[in-house]
């Protein structure tokens, strides 16, 4: 299933945040949107998710125009920067939420939901913490619950907004592996917003470098390193090699 964004424009007041962004993903691909704050990457992700709407441009998923489709009907999993776990629900209830709110005719049975939840809990290695509340979890655990909750609905695309920014460096490193692993297992394409070059390099098949409302280069990490298209990309790539 391929995803395409075509010529997306977005302004807030007088500020044009996205100036005609196009992006095309292959099936199961992991794409990172990399850029400094204010480059428009989070806005682009929100538009893809349906949490914001483009002023101009088109979103296509598997050939279908989803530009005006409400967020809830896109079946895109979203991992929020602060995870946005439901604080009054247990870990298991958080994960099951997307299944429980399905319309009656397409909703799995109670036992099927429980089984799927257990499966996801095991996948994130938190089966013993099913009855904990988010406040009782560490940052890394919350992040994994957020991942499992997003994957529970068997999303067509996984969207992540700075999924590691709230974690300390050590946890971040180990979670990268697990996120990539979960995404592969789910066999779902993913778009991750990040401002951390190392993170993008470690996770993504391809990286879209964003600056001032444009995607300035979109390619595999090694190509970005060996063949930067502009000074901006060259500096960005080199920045943390030093």
């Amino acid at each position: 299933m391929t995803f395409q964004a075509l010529d997306i424009h977005k302004s807030f007041g007088d500020t044009e945040v996205l100036k005609g962004v196009s992006l095309s993903m292959k099936e199961g691909e992991f794409v990172a949107l990399l850029g400094p704050s204010g480059s428009g990457k989070t806005t682009l992700l929100n538009i893809i998710a349906g949490l914001a709407h483009a002023d101009r441009g088109q979103l296509l998923f598997a050939g279908e125009d989803i530009t005006r489709l409400p967020a809830g009907q896109r079946h895109f999993g979203f991992v929020f920067q602060n995870y946005a776990l439901f604080r009054h629900m247990t870990v298991a209830q958080n994960i099951a939420f997307g299944l429980r709110v399905l319309p009656r005719k397409s909703r799995p049975s109670r036992s099927a939901i429980a089984a799927r939840t257990r499966e996801l809990l095991e996948m994130i290695e938190m089966a013993d913490l099913a009855d904990r509340f988010p406040a009782q979890l560490s940052g890394g655990q919350r992040q994994r619950v957020a991942m499992a909750r997003a994957l529970a609905i068997e999303p067509r695309l996984l969207l992540m907004d700075e999924p590691f920014s709230a974690l300390d460096a050590q946890v971040r490193q180990s979670l990268r592996e697990s996120v990539r692993d979960l995404q592969r297992k789910a066999g779902v394409g993913a778009i991750m917003v990040t401002h951390d070059r190392a993170e993008a390099w470690a996770l993504a098949d391809r990286v879209a470098v964003m600056n001032e409302g444009h995607i300035v280069q979109f390619d595999r990490p090694e190509v970005l390193s060996s063949n930067p298209s502009s000074d901006f990309v060259r500096l960005l790539v080199r920045a943390d090699a030093a």
Partner: peptide, 28 residues
């Protein structure tokens, strides 16, 4: 104080307005 994030998360998970109110807003 609780902010909008949980409601947005519920939106992306496919919940409708009533479900968001009933399961996310009301308990909070």
């Amino acid at each position: 104080v609780t902010g909008e994030d949980e409601e947005l998360a519920a939106v992306t998970l496919g919940a409708n307005g009533w479900q968001i109110f009933r399961h996310v807003v009301l308990p909070n």
